[in-house]
Each structure stands twice: as structure tokens, then as C-alpha cells.
């Protein structure tokens, strides 16, 4: 089967990138203007750290290296499969839903596999929450995107289009990283990622942990039971369960990796070491936590 990506898809990538990029600049200017009106610090330490991560992220690391590695890895799978899903106005809807599905699982892996969480926790480590939070990009996200997008590519979905959807979803979410907006119409809140349900995703309260992984839609959260609306009775506490308490980019990047290494080194058996690396954060062996050690060795406390 002759299958080539139409060249104009690449042009669309560029046009969309410029449009959404300048919209992002507009949102950042707006945030700074409103901060000034509120007599708040124009650029708090966390926002500066976010800007540092963004400077190294999209224009350098992602544009030059990681997105190329992601697309190259997915193209290996694409070349190995005989299946192809053509790109037409009709199949774009399917592409969108599959792209959302893959985004959901990439995101969920980033939260629920500890070694991947070490990377993704960088994005979640800010205790502030505004449009600059979305600038806090992470260096290894392409790794879990490869894992989550490979099955769709194996089914014949074009890697470039799927990656494009992933980038678009992340760009759209910039406008959801704000506490300035309240709830939208109920039908909208139940269908799309909104500021209110993305606040839940960034909160570290037990009620909100590991919820709302969707990119543009909350469809797959609803299907897999991870949807959680913001509760009036539970104000969001931002950050991660073991707060970094620093705006130093090096500390932010290494924080969870250090914890991982500490637990990995202290784990007495290889089974526990494996669990530390690939288990769910908070549920694996933790050095110094006697309950966690006992739980990891003997199963949940109280269980026989």
C-alpha cells in the first residue's frame, strides 16, 4: 500500500504552532498584567523556574531532540506493521479519539509508574498554579509517549499526526492552568478538560490524587474511572505529596530521582527493588518508613 504523509500536514503543524504559541504569549502577558493589578510579585520564584524549564524544553530539547526521537521510535513500529489508517476528514475524528486515548495512557503511566513519575513530578512540583505552571516541561516525557503511542501506531495510525495531537493537547492545557476562572457550563465541565478539573489533576489532596489525565477530553477518564470533579468542600493543595520546597531547577529535576535511588538502594530484595522502580508511587517500599517496609514485604497492613 502506498502511504505518504501529505506535506501540508507539516505546514499545518507550523501554522498551528505559531497561532497557539502567540496565544500562549498573550496568556502570559495577561497573567503578568493581572498580577500587577493585584499588587502581587510579577514573576514569583516558581514562575521564573517554570520559564527556565520552558526555555530548555520546547525550543531546544523537544524541538531538536526528544520529539524527533519520539517520532523516529514510532516510525520503527510504523514500518513494521502492514496496517495503515489513512488520513481523511472522516478518519481525523478517529485519529483524535485514538490520540486522546494514547495521551491519557502516556499521562497515566507518568503518574503511576514510579520511575516515570520521577520525571513527570517535575511538572507537578510547583506549589503555585497559574498559566506559567504549564511551562514546567519535563525532559523524559517522550519515553512514556513511545510506550503509550506504540500500540496505536502498530494498528496503523500515523505517528506524526498522533504526536501532533499530543502537542496540541498540551498547548490547549495552558489555558486550563489557572485559578482565575471558575466552573464553566456543566455539559462543558463533563466533556472537556477545564481549569476546574485540571486544578484537581494538579492537587495533592488524597481525594484528588491520580485523577483527570485527559488531554482535551475527559472521555477516557470517565471510561477508566479516573474522573474527579473539583469539590467545593475540598480546596486544592498544589504540588506533590513530598513537596520539593525549592525553586532551584536542579533541585526540582533531581528531587524524585534522589528519593527513588534512596529507596532502591535500601530495598532488601530484588523483588522490592523492581517494585520501587516500576511500582505505583506511594505504594512501594520506602526507606525509613517501617509501615511501608512491612507492607511491601508482607502485603497491606491488617491483611492476613
Amino acid at each position: 500500500m502506498n502511504f505518504e504523509l501529505p506535506l501540508h500536514i507539516i505546514d499545518i503543524f507550523k501554522i498551528w504552532g505559531v497561532g497557539s504559541g502567540i496565544a500562549l504569549v498573550f496568556a502570559l502577558f495577561s497573567e503578568m498584567f493581572l498580577r500587577r493589578q493585584e499588587k502581587q510579585k510579577l514573576l514569583p520564584k516558581d514562575a521564573i523556574a517554570n520559564a527556565v524549564f520552558f526555555s530548555f524544553g520546547p525550543p531546544l530539547l523537544e524541538a531538536v531532540i526528544t520529539n524527533a526521537l519520539l517520532i523516529a521510535a514510532l516510525f520503527v513500529v510504523f514500518q513494521l506493521t502492514p496496517l495503515r489508517v489513512s488520513i481523511t476528514p472522516w478518519t481525523l475524528v478517529l485519529y483524535f479519539l485514538v490520540g486522546e486515548f494514547s495521551f491519557y495512557w502516556a499521562h497515566r503511566l507518568g503518574h503511576e509508574v514510579r520511575i516515570l513519575w520521577c520525571d513527570h513530578s517535575i511538572h507537578h512540583s510547583s506549589q503555585e498554579y497559574d498559566v506559567t505552571t504549564n511551562l514546567r516541561h519535563t525532559p523524559f516525557m517522550f519515553l512514556y509517549r513511545v510506550i503509550a503511542y506504540a500500540p496505536a501506531v502498530a494498528l496503523g495510525f500515523h505517528p506524526v499526526l498522533l504526536v501532533m495531537f499530543a502537542i496540541n493537547a498540551s498547548a490547549f492545557q495552558t489555558f486550563c492552568h489557572t485559578q482565575r476562572l471558575g466552573r464553566f457550563a456543566p455539559w462543558f465541565e463533563k466533556t472537556f478538560v477545564t481549569p476546574s478539573n485540571h486544578i484537581v489533576h494538579h492537587a495533592c489532596n488524597p481525594e484528588y490524587l491520580d485523577k483527570n489525565y485527559g488531554g482535551l477530553l475527559v472521555l477516557w477518564d470517565r471510561v477508566f474511572g479516573t474522573y474527579q470533579p473539583l469539590l467545593d468542600t475540598v480546596p486544592a493543595k498544589f504540588g506533590i505529596t513530598k513537596q520539593v520546597n525549592s525553586s532551584n531547577p536542579v533541585t526540582i529535576v533531581t528531587h524524585e530521582f534522589k528519593n527513588l535511588w534512596r529507596d532502591f538502594s535500601a530495598a532488601p530484595t530484588w523483588r522490592l527493588k523492581f517494585g520501587v522502580v516500576f511500582g505505583k508511587p506511594g505504594k512501594t517500599f520506602e526507606a525509613g518508613d517501617k509501615n511501608k517496609v512491612a507492607e511491601a514485604i508482607n502485603g497491606p497492613l491488617g491483611a492476613n
Partner: peptide, 21 residues
Amino acid sequence: HSAWLLPLLVVFNMAFGMALL
């Protein structure tokens, strides 16, 4: 109805991008 705004998720960025380019 605000549902008619949904196409703008794509249209706005494309139109704005084309204008800026």
C-alpha cells in the same frame, strides 16, 4: 449555543497562525 465554539479549538489557532505568518 457555546457548543458552536468548539471548532475554534482548531480554527482560531490556524487562522491566527496564518495571519501572523
